[in-house]
Computed example of a mutant assay.
Amino acid sequence: MKPRPKHLVAALAVAAVLVALVVGDPFADPPARHALQPDNARVLAQGRRIYEAQCVACHGARLEGQPNWRERGPDGRLPAPPHDASGHTWHHPDELLFRLTKFGVAKVANLKGYVSAMPVYEGILSDEEIVAVLSWIKSQWPAEIRARHDEINQQAQQ
């Protein structure tokens, strides 16, 4: 069997996550419960604190992620992607971002054996804290990216 190109494997993983979102997930809560709040000052203050404590070491102080984030390292894991406008975070609806953060890619996409350096935050952060950190990340995006993300959320709810 021929080895698969790294980009193909990454693309298949993303496709599996999107399929899981469309098909539904038995352990997911209603989407409205996890709507991001990028204009809520209290939520943003909490989210910033959590980001600095839990996320900045890998995703960077400016949301820049790690170098070569699309290429697997020697350990087979992808480096942390950027969460700024240059990354793909804003391409995903709120509910998927929430579920990936809480449950991890392997569980959300049902990818047995998938390894990731990203911690699973179920049992570490509350749902409110996950929404807060994701809200803070979204609040850092330029207005046009936030507007596009809002459109993605609307499409996902149809």
Rank of each mutant, 00 (worst) to 15 (best):
S86C: 08
E151D: 15
G24M: 02
Q66R: 06
L111A: 08
P26Q: 13
V14W: 03
G104L: 04
L21S: 02
K6M: 11
Y121Q: 09
D94V: 00
V9W: 01
A85R: 10
P74W: 06
N110M: 09
A11W: 01
K6T: 11
T89Q: 05
T89C: 06
I130M: 03
E64W: 00
V131D: 01
E71G: 05
R33V: 07
W69R: 06
L63F: 13
V108I: 13
P5N: 11
A11P: 05
L8I: 11
L21T: 04
C58P: 02
Q37L: 09
P82W: 06
S116G: 10
I152T: 04
I130F: 02
K138D: 10
E52F: 05
S139R: 02
A20E: 06
N110D: 15
D25P: 01
I50H: 05
A13D: 11
A132S: 14
W90K: 03
R99H: 01
H92I: 04
N40Q: 12
D75R: 01
S139E: 05
Q66H: 03
H34Q: 09
L36P: 00
H34K: 08
V120L: 02
A106D: 10
P67M: 03
G104K: 04
R4H: 09
I130K: 05
E151Y: 10
I124H: 10
Q46E: 13
V115G: 14
Y121G: 06
N68L: 13
S86W: 00
V131M: 05
L96R: 00
D150N: 12
A61H: 12
G47Q: 00
H34E: 05
D29T: 15
C58V: 02
R72P: 15
G123I: 08
A15G: 13
P26Y: 12
P119T: 10
A53T: 05
I50F: 03
R48Y: 03
P30E: 14
A41P: 14
R70Q: 12
D75H: 07
P26G: 12
P74G: 14
L125I: 12
L8F: 08
H59C: 05
L63T: 00
V108Y: 01
P119G: 14
A57D: 09
R99I: 06
F27P: 08
K6S: 15
G60E: 03
I124V: 15
G76M: 11
D84Q: 08
A10V: 08
